[in-house]
Amino acid sequence: MALDKNGIAQRIAQELKDGYYVNLGIGIPTLVANYIPNHIAVEFQSENGVLGMGPFPFEGEEDADIINAGKQTITTLEGASFFDSATSFAMIRGKHVDLTILGAMEVSQTGDIANWKIPGKMVKGMGGAMDLVASAENIVVAMMHTNRAGVSKLLKKCSLPLTGVGCVKKIVTELAVMDVGPTGFILREIAPGVSIYEVIKVTAGDIHVAEDVCVMSF
C-alpha cells in the first residue's frame, strides 16, 4: 500500500546522519522532524534565522517573535541560536547545511525542480528555495508521485518555471525512493505492497530499475 505523508517523512528521516544540520521545507518535509532516530544528533535550520529548532510550543507559551519559515510558532532546543537573514543564507550558500529536504510540483530526470510558480494561476514566490537548491549538495525531494489530477510529477523535462537546474539527487514519494541517475530516474526502493509496475506506470520520465531494488524498511 502507498505511504501517507507521515510515511514519506519517516522514510526520509532515514537519510539523517549524526551531526547533520538540516533545512526542512514547508509541508511533508516539516514532518521529518517527528522521526529523528534516537541515537543521532541533528539540528534543524530554518532560513528565517534559527538553528536548533524545537517542537511547537505548549498552548499559551507561543511567542510571536519565534517562528519558523512557515510562519508557525516554534520553540528552540538547548544550543539553539538566532541570526539575521544574510547569515542564514551564508549557511545555505556556503554549504554549511548538510541536507535540504523540500517539496516540489515537478522534478525532471536530470534533477531539475519546479516548485514556485504556475503561470497564470499561482504565484507565491520562491522564498528561499532557489538559494537552497542552487547550493545544497544533498537535496531530497519529498512529494506525492502524481498531482491531484493524477498526472506524473516525475518528468523527462519540467513544464513549469524552474526553481533550480540539475540539483535534485533523491526523491521520496508515497510509492518509491528514486535517485536521479545519468540517464533517468533509478528506482531504488518501493513502498510495502506497491509493485515495480505501479511505480513505472506513474513515472513519466525514463526510469531504470536498480538491480538491488528492495522494499522500504521501517
Binding site: F58, D65, I67, Q72, T73, I74
Partner: peptide, 12 residues
Amino acid sequence: EKRIEQRTVRSK
C-alpha cells in the same frame, strides 16, 4: 500588536 500568522501549539 505582533500578530501571529500561524499559531501552532501542542497540547500538554
